[in-house]
Computed example of a mutant assay.
Amino acid sequence: MSLPPSAQKVQDSLNALGFGGCEVVEMPDTTRTSAEAAAAIGCTVAQIAKSLVFKGRQSGDPVLVIASGTNRVDTKKLAALLGEKTDKPDADYVRERTGYAIGGIPPVGHASPLRTYIDRDLLQFEVIWAAAGTPHAVFRLTPDDLVRMTGGEVVEIAQPPSA
């Protein structure tokens, strides 16, 4: 079965990076949000590696933060890492800088290189799932795969939801 062009681009990137064992799959149900992805896959929301794009307020540069689906990114910690505050960019900026629409942003295969941070909380899982270019495509990987394929810096940048 052939993949949509955006999902195929992710699979091609995975293959080129030496992660051909990570297979992009199309789900019948939407995987746009972490909760929807977990329900479609049959895993916990925490096992979803959500990719969020932020924009440096002064530089205008994109930064990718990959965090557990249950956690919220601490923008103060992100600003401290970057040396500048960040904003949430609009959908056009995200598509221009990544090549993908919000709800399908993968950890690899972007239109231009992105500085990447991976929240340490994701490292606790044996298996995680990431978006693969469309709101219906995902792929299975390990936290170690994620770190190696993205070259991302592992940091404590997200917080679990408040009790």
Rank of each mutant, 00 (worst) to 15 (best):
G56N: 09
P28N: 10
L81M: 12
T30P: 04
V127W: 14
V147H: 02
R32G: 00
K55C: 12
R32A: 14
P28W: 00
H110P: 07
L81T: 04
D92A: 15
L17Q: 12
L81A: 13
L3Y: 02
N71R: 14
Y93K: 08
L14K: 05
A38K: 05
L52H: 06
R57T: 10
E23F: 01
P135G: 11
Q159D: 15
S13R: 09
Q11G: 08
E23G: 00
L78F: 03
G60Y: 11
A111F: 01
I48Q: 02
V63E: 11
A91Q: 14
E153I: 08
I102N: 07
E153V: 13
P113T: 04
L64T: 12
V147Y: 02
V138E: 01
A163K: 13
G83W: 09
K50L: 09
A91N: 14
V127K: 14
F54A: 10
Y100T: 13
A37D: 06
A49P: 08
S59D: 10
D29P: 00
R57Y: 08
V73H: 05
E36F: 06
S68D: 08
I41E: 02
Q124L: 03
L78I: 00
D90Y: 10
A80N: 13
D74M: 02
K55G: 06
L64M: 15
G60I: 05
T31M: 01
T116C: 12
V73C: 13
D87K: 14
R97F: 13
K55R: 15
V127H: 12
A158N: 08
V94S: 03
V10W: 01
F19A: 08
K77I: 00
Q124G: 10
E153P: 01
V147D: 00
P160G: 15
M149T: 09
C43S: 12
P135M: 01
V45G: 01
Y100C: 08
A80R: 14
D87F: 03
Y93S: 09
Q159C: 13
A137V: 07
G151R: 11
T44R: 13
S6K: 13
I105D: 03
V10R: 01
V65S: 06
A7R: 06
S51L: 06
V154S: 08
G99P: 09
T75F: 02
Y93T: 04
A38S: 14
R72E: 12
L141H: 03
S34L: 01
L17G: 12
G83P: 10
L52C: 02
A80K: 15
I105Q: 02
L141M: 15
